[in-house]
Computed example of a mutant assay.
Amino acid sequence: MYDIKTRNVLYKEVQRPQLIIWIIFLSIAALMWYAFIHQVLLGNPFGSKPASNATVIVFWLIFGLAFPLILLKWTKLIVEVHEDGLYIRFMPFHLEYKKFLYKEIKSYKSIKFSPFTRFGGWGFRVNFKGETGYISSGKQGIELTLKYQTVVISAKNPDELIKAMDIKNAL
């Protein structure tokens, strides 16, 4: 077995979070900034039952600074086709690539789907049917059927991804 860094990448795409996710996170961040400035810096209570300044500071650090930085800077889904299978990494949540080896994949196909209807949203998801989703953006992707599991991976160019998998699988 060889290291992923030395493998020949047949196809690669990098997906960033969808615009709606950015809007939600930045709206929450703006609210935290407002609460921080209003209560901690200006000394005016925020809301009818204000939290302590320490609580406001902690929430501001987490939701006003950390989450937006993580989302804007580091969150991305990397999808790669290698000679032995499909590799994905949902940064910053996966420390290593998740491997779907060809020998473990029963079938795969290009699909159009609603992330909200099928999985309840975007990100790393498991639905009530037991399907696993790695969804960063868009409404298209690929569906892998494994022995005991179905995996959906969003893709900007699912047909190109399938083509790369078909070429390698045919060899």
Rank of each mutant, 00 (worst) to 15 (best):
M91F: 01
L61Y: 02
P92I: 00
A51S: 14
G47F: 01
H38C: 09
G141S: 04
P158A: 01
W60T: 10
K12M: 01
E160W: 04
K49C: 04
L61I: 11
F63K: 08
L69A: 10
I153E: 02
R7N: 11
R16V: 06
I167P: 03
A170D: 13
G64W: 06
E160G: 13
P17C: 05
K168C: 08
V79S: 09
L61F: 05
F36K: 09
G123P: 08
P45W: 03
I4T: 06
V126F: 03
L65V: 14
Y148R: 09
L19C: 01
T150Q: 15
S110Q: 12
M165T: 00
E131P: 09
V81Y: 12
M1L: 05
K98S: 00
L77W: 08
Q149D: 06
L77R: 15
L146P: 07
M1N: 04
A54M: 10
D159R: 06
K168T: 07
K163E: 06
F36Y: 15
S27W: 07
N127M: 08
S107H: 08
Y34V: 12
K129D: 10
S52P: 03
L41G: 06
K163H: 03
I167H: 15
A66V: 10
S107V: 05
Y148V: 11
Q140A: 14
L31A: 15
K147S: 09
G85I: 06
W33R: 08
L69C: 09
K112V: 12
W33G: 07
L61Q: 02
L72H: 01
Y148S: 09
V126D: 01
K99T: 04
V14T: 15
V9M: 02
G138M: 11
S136K: 00
N157D: 13
T132D: 13
K156M: 08
K99S: 11
I142D: 02
L171T: 14
F116V: 15
W22S: 10
S107K: 10
M165W: 05
L146I: 07
L144A: 02
K109L: 08
L86E: 02
K109D: 11
